[in-house]
Design a binder for these strands. Structure first.
Lengths: 212, 212, 212, 212
DNA sequence: ACCCTCGGGACGACCCGTTACT
DNA sequence: AGTAACGGGTCGTCCCGAGGGT
């Protein structure tokens, strides 16, 4: 797809430094075709941001706290290989303040985490003194910063460990002792989740193929 | 100064979107003068990054852990008014991966925090199971992300509270209970430190004037 | 054509002093169009050099020595009116050393003359002791210098006479007496050849028009 | 000297592409000093052209024709090592048409050669039918072109041979048979003359030193 | 409906030769 | 002699329409 190429370029160069010409070249598209599908450069960026949120559907878990952890772990894992996600984070970090009046990715993520947190709190997984919104925004912000740090220092190779460390430091102030004992936030949580998802997809695919 | 204007523009537009012409206009400098002092745009960015680290000298504290907290609190506070610092963080977030081979701001901050953390650990303020480097990098990353979040959502107006919340969540996993009781990480810690520093400067200035 | 304008400017100002803007203005082209056809200024120069060599097709002559003379005479004549040729010589003189690794115009010309010289020698028009390569390169070099001299002093108005004088001085050391008697290197040899070529073109054109 | 550095840069880059900053750097001069000695860039070029003509004083010879040959041979030889001369020829070739209203180097050289030629003709060394001015200008032009050719193709390493070849081709049409027998235009004429001049200078220097 | 060649300006950073003030 | 300041100008490139073809 043409978005793929755009994502690569945005990831490598950032929004401003990315040139449509470069995207064209890399996706072997011509100028006319490019502007037929995406009226402007900003449109490309918006499409990438939209794609990004779509790609985070996770199977529900009995523990809502585990779900939050899993979303970060899987996101961290996918960041290693998915150019759309990589570009999405870069664009969020660089341009969130200016570009997205309503569909701010930060807000979207924080809202999702806050909802999960509230549910978890009702189920007794989360300490009572926790302010769901405050904690949710802290988690999202921290994750974004850690990701940036890891990107800078090791090109995200150690992002899994860093996210694991984040949870190790944060959870004592969030989770109830009982809930905490059952949580899995090991560094390889991301890859494991990805493997499970891939297996599920393999299960589903033949059925689809048979249906078609 | 000319750096001041550059910082403003970088803060508002980011590195790529900032134009030298705009910086020129805003600082009422001519093109020739501009390039006499800063041979290139990248040089301007580098100078801002360098200035930034200089501006973080804090009076030593008996508690090294408190020193770490204070550095974040004061930094958060100054971020509200100091364009150099504002620009510095934006440049770090946007371009740290590409621009600064050795003088990476992330590394510099993380190194400083790690040193303080190790000293604190020797003094019994920090739990033994804490890995100083891991924790230091987590703190720096989280701070950067939180700052970005706050910048996006409220133009950093609530950064003090967010940093305070960060410490509230992080400290239980870092500080020994005894040390924790004596730590001050209230949201207004930053402004208070700034006031103290200002008073100290007022004290020193007259003496200097008298000496001269 | 756009090359025409570029040639004019290069001819008048030289490569470095010529500005793309000036070429644009003079050819009423926009910058976008300009860079669409010629990716760079150097490319313009290269194209001019290429055009130049194309424009020197001459009807074969029984005397190969006469062919060499004719090529210089016609070239000298065209230099008065053809901007591409004028620019070409200037570019060759100024930049041949640096710009054209393989397609050096000097070498191209010298090679052509050398070949003709060798053929002429086999036919007995050229003295045996003549070293074809040495003489060919001398002719090309001399022609270039004479052209530069004439350009400087009389804006090339007397180039025909100068080339004639060159042959008057050179031929005794090149041509056999028998061949020499039949050679025509009068100052107006160039214009006469041009007239013949024009007449031939007029002959051909109607036929083409009729065929089409 | 500062001219030396300027000459180098002009030789390598040409007039337009040469930058005063580069000349400054290479001669370790500061901007102020630079503009104190040479009010403008054009002034630098003019000074180099002036220096150039000075450096061609040759001991008088009984044969004026030999003197002409020697001037070309010595000039060709010095071109290998003297940056001032190298730069001078480049500037002459590039800018003679535009820069020097009265002190045109071409004219200066042609005039000198013409005078020598006339004297030689009076002495019977030169054929009667020779038009001194025409021939003088031919010689100067040819030399310039040959030098350019050699510069392009072999960085002037074979310039001696080329000049020798030039004379071999030209002299039959210029010199009387009697005079020609006594002329020396071998390829190594330049180096030999330089050696003689050096020896003479060695002779003179001690005396000067003694006198001083 | 989809794609591409071609054209259009507006800036981009950078660097230039040159002049005042110290 | 030397540091600082000055604008004008360079080439290159960018994001983007418009007409022609498939």
């Amino acid at each position: 797809l043409i978005l793929e190429a755009a994502a690569e370029v945005f990831d490598e160069l950032g929004y401003e430094a990315a040139s449509i010409t470069e995207i064209m070249t890399r996706s072997a598209t011509s100028r006319g075709s490019m502007y037929f599908h995406f009226p402007s450069k900003a449109d490309l960026a918006r499409s990438i941001l939209a794609e990004q949120t779509v790609r985070l559907d996770l199977p529900p878990n009995v523990s809502k706290l585990q779900e939050i952890i899993d979303v970060t772990a899987l996101f961290a894992h996918r960041l290693l290989s998915d150019p759309i996600l990589r570009a999405g984070t870069r664009l969020t970090l660089e341009r969130s303040s200016v570009e997205f009046p309503d569909t701010n990715p930060y807000r979207a993520w924080a809202g999702m985490v806050e909802d999960l947190l509230l549910t978890a709190q009702q189920r007794g997984e989360v300490l009572n003194q926790v302010d769901a919104r405050e904690t949710a925004e802290l988690i999202v912000g921290s994750f974004a910063g850690i990701q940036s740090f890891s990107h800078t220092v090791t090109d995200r190779q150690d992002l899994g460990s860093r996210v694991s460390a984040m949870w190790k430091h944060l959870l004592p102030a969030i989770a109830t002792p009982a809930a905490m004992a059952r949580l899995d936030f090991a560094p390889d949580r991301g890859p494991r989740l990805a493997a499970i998802a891939a297996a599920a997809a393999d299960d589903a695919a033949p059925r689809e193929a048979a249906g078609a």
